[in-house]
Amino acid sequence: MNVLTVLLALLSALGNGAASVLQRRAAMDQEREQPGGQGLGHAVRRLGRLLCRPYWLAGGAAMVVSAVAQVGALAVGRLSVVQPLLVSELLFTLVVGSLVFRQYPDGRTWLAFVMLAAGLALFLIAADPSRGQATAQNGRWLPVGVAVVLAVAALAAVARALHGAARAAVLGCATAACFACTAALIKEFTGRFAGGVAAVFTSWPLYAVCVVGLLSFLLLQSTLRAGTLAASQPALTLGDALVSIVLGWVLFGERVELGLRILPEAVGVALMAVGIVGLTRSPAMAGGWDADGPAAPEPSAAPTTDIPGRRDGSGDRGRAP
């Protein structure tokens, strides 16, 4: 595997994890300091103030770094390597969240952390994806695009008949297919850099990335509303990685080792699945870190005299509503 590809993919995963934690912290702080009101105007003003908060701006910067790093990773590396490495976003979320919220995971969460990391490493070493072409083979995108659209439509139709965890898992699979397709389109887009600026902006992949990326984002919101992260995240995270491997093979001619290596590859996928479930049940994913925000002072039993200029140095923490 190309070292630069690995580093850029891990940087992208770190950026995504950091953005989630930092922007969640900004939302917590705002809710604690400026409780929500009613009306559209109030909501718009709150959003504007949120976007100016240092934590939110830091999260936005992390998102930009993540996007640039992913584009760079896909430009120099294989789709079947980059997307599986993005599974490590959960690991970085755990680490960054521990630092930002100052609440550290328990032993079971760290065990899940180790299992996910070990499974990811085992799978990539056993699969050893080969280098393919920079752009898709002629005529491959149309049938692949039709197949992805049909698969996502079928999964969405099935999800409408389900409820709770089952619905979240099925929508997670649909969202995973969309994200994998978005990554494949980014690789197709970056593969045309050699043709110059005109080739990049006059060809269809750039605009397809925008459309499919937006649809992926909207489908993700439905997935997150359908059920818990413990139900949707394994299908979403692993599905993205596995569908990306298939797309890398079909579109770009990338290959993974099979034969006797299927066994360690399957063990690696199983370890990742168990690790993902463990992490999604941890405070980092389940929202337990929300308890880190400073609570409002408890009313005292006896009146006290205010001292001008004095600030309450209490370190008490309370859950943001």
Results as ranks from 00 to 15, higher is better:
residue 93 T to N: 13
residue 231 A to T: 05
residue 172 G to S: 09
residue 23 Q to Y: 01
residue 47 L to I: 12
residue 104 Y to P: 00
residue 116 L to R: 05
residue 163 H to S: 15
residue 59 G to W: 14
residue 19 A to T: 12
residue 225 R to T: 07
residue 139 G to K: 13
residue 230 A to W: 04
residue 79 L to T: 02
residue 89 E to K: 14
residue 312 D to K: 14
residue 148 V to N: 11
residue 176 A to M: 01
residue 189 F to D: 02
residue 127 A to D: 13
residue 123 F to Q: 00
residue 233 Q to A: 15
residue 244 S to D: 01
residue 228 T to I: 00
residue 194 A to N: 07
residue 193 F to Q: 10
residue 294 P to N: 13
residue 64 V to Y: 06
residue 188 E to R: 06
residue 275 G to S: 02
residue 90 L to Q: 13
residue 289 W to E: 09
residue 292 D to Y: 14
residue 201 F to Y: 05
residue 57 L to I: 05
residue 214 L to T: 15
residue 224 L to N: 11
residue 114 V to Y: 10
residue 26 A to Q: 05
residue 186 I to L: 12
residue 311 R to N: 02
residue 53 R to F: 07
residue 294 P to I: 13
residue 64 V to I: 15
residue 268 G to I: 02
residue 196 G to E: 05
residue 29 D to E: 15
residue 239 G to P: 09
residue 69 A to C: 12
residue 223 T to W: 05
residue 119 G to W: 08
residue 312 D to H: 15
residue 195 G to D: 11
residue 2 N to M: 08
residue 238 L to S: 04
residue 98 S to C: 10
residue 255 R to I: 00
residue 108 R to K: 12
residue 32 R to W: 04
residue 109 T to D: 10
residue 102 R to S: 04
residue 257 E to T: 07
residue 188 E to K: 08
residue 223 T to Q: 11
residue 62 A to R: 06
residue 87 V to R: 09
residue 179 F to I: 11
residue 303 P to Q: 10
residue 226 A to T: 10
residue 39 G to F: 00
residue 320 A to E: 01
residue 184 A to K: 03
residue 117 A to Q: 05
residue 252 F to E: 03
residue 70 Q to D: 00
residue 294 P to C: 09
residue 135 T to I: 15
residue 200 V to A: 10
residue 141 W to E: 02
residue 163 H to R: 14
residue 34 Q to D: 12
residue 173 C to A: 15
residue 10 L to I: 14
residue 284 A to L: 01
residue 209 V to I: 14
residue 105 P to I: 14
residue 290 D to T: 03
residue 170 V to F: 08
residue 143 P to L: 13
residue 184 A to E: 10
residue 2 N to R: 15
residue 3 V to H: 10
residue 298 E to G: 03
residue 274 V to S: 00
residue 62 A to F: 02
residue 123 F to S: 03
residue 7 L to E: 01
residue 59 G to L: 13
residue 221 Q to G: 02
residue 181 C to F: 13
residue 285 M to F: 10
residue 205 P to E: 08
residue 202 T to G: 06
residue 304 T to L: 08
residue 67 A to G: 14
residue 187 K to M: 04
residue 220 L to A: 05
residue 287 G to F: 01
residue 112 A to K: 08
residue 22 L to P: 04
residue 151 A to R: 08
